[in-house]
Design a protein around this nucleic acid. Structure first.
Lengths: 219, 219
DNA sequence: CACTTGCATATTGTATCCAATATTCGATAT
DNA sequence: ATATCGAATATTGGATACAATATGCAAGTG
């Protein structure tokens, strides 16, 4: 048949829609650490019953984005400096490995996309812009690795710390430094120097870690 | 007060109980790949309504242990040889890193526990025994790293592939080889040789990977 | 006034019921 | 005989109603 069709079976359930919306709100920091998620309130916002809301909250809990206590409800999960330090170490380990696997298989199209995100990053005006473009830039460089399990773990880890990542970018020297280091990583990819790209990625992440921790402790 | 008390708030909800039971059934292979999870059936088994069953299934889905299709339901998620290969690579990367961090902080008590699991492993009679003791052995060696995020990711990864891990152990040369390699890893830990323990752990996991893949392809 | 106790209210957990969709199976037509 | 259609059944998704628990407050007690 010659009809433009979409697979209706893939339309999202109410639970999925609510989950995505809440996840976005948490990731972008619109819901602060410790903020409670009231089922009734959310249900009214989405004009549904509490059932899909509960399923959405269950998903968020599995992702580690909220913590729930029985009969008390869910609150947005914060992150301690120690946890942040560990998660940045984890990122350096996994993202370094993945980019090393990706470089030999990296298409020209990928490199072009990466460069466009890099430009959008340096032209961004708000923390949300910076965070979005920063994430797009990194993710695209990992994609051609074809390591889907690794990629999934990285996604979940980034979701978990996105708020803090944005905060780090917004620090005084965060943006300029990120730009410089992104440029170097991309250059290594373009030279097809996988080892170097991996090394630069690890340094980039670990540098961001110390930068962030210095500031977390200062407060 | 002098009363033996338990924190009732920590008693599990119906959804959690069902989740744990289903997870166990999937991990131990009692539910085969592709087996459907009928909400009504499970609800009757646990003498509850379908609501907590659905929450349990959404938890399983977030863990990647089942895949669901709207209005069609959930089935146990299988794993392709490619995915298996990638996940074993991931394990080698992360578990190698974690054991290296753990060795310098490893307590004598941990080493004793590890040795007891090793003995129980070699004396086990069934695939379930082998799998349990194997997992206990590895997990205890990682614990003293204090890297909770890494440990959580490792747990989830092992849950995802536990069935295949058992299968690999049950292969002709699986047990003897695992025993030999475990012994070497533990010896390195006892010598406080972190680098060597990490290297042996990586080899152990990657060796199991090729062993498993040879057999997956044979079928 | 500090402290407990009991009640009213708020919130979450679960059961029951209805709606939406998928699947099975038989009847019919070609 | 095979394919197609449609009704009956099975199954999941969601709304409503009720039960269990937590929280805040006011009255009572010392």
């Amino acid at each position: 048949m010659q009809i433009d069709s979409i697979n209706i079976a893939q339309t999202a359930s109410a639970a999925t829609i609510i989950y995505e919306a809440l996840k976005k709100a948490i990731i972008e920091g619109q819901l602060a650490d410790g903020a409670p998620l009231r089922q009734d309130e959310i249900a009214k916002m989405f004009n549904t019953s509490r059932i899909p809301v509960r399923e959405a909250i269950t998903m968020l809990e599995q992702q580690g984005l909220v913590v729930t206590q029985r009969y008390k409800g869910a609150v947005v999960a914060g992150i301690s400096p120690d946890e942040a330090a560990e998660i940045w170490d984890f990122r350096a380990l996994v993202e370094g490995h993945v980019i090393e696997a990706a470089v030999p298989r990296m298409s020209d199209e990928t490199l072009e996309l990466a460069r466009s995100y890099l430009m959008a990053f340096s032209e961004g005006a708000t923390p949300v812009d910076w965070g979005d473009q920063n994430r797009k830039f990194h993710t695209i460089l990992y994609r051609d690795s074809g390591l889907f399990y690794h990629l999934g773990v990285i996604e979940k880890t980034l979701d978990r710390v996105d708020r803090y990542l944005r905060a780090q970018l917004a620090l005084s020297n965060g943006l300029a430094r990120a730009n410089r280091e992104h440029e170097a990583i991309l250059a290594a990819c373009e030279r097809r120097d996988a080892t170097r790209a991996a090394e630069l990625t690890r340094q980039h992440i670990l540098g961001a870690k110390t930068n962030l921790l210095d500031n977390l402790r200062k407060r």
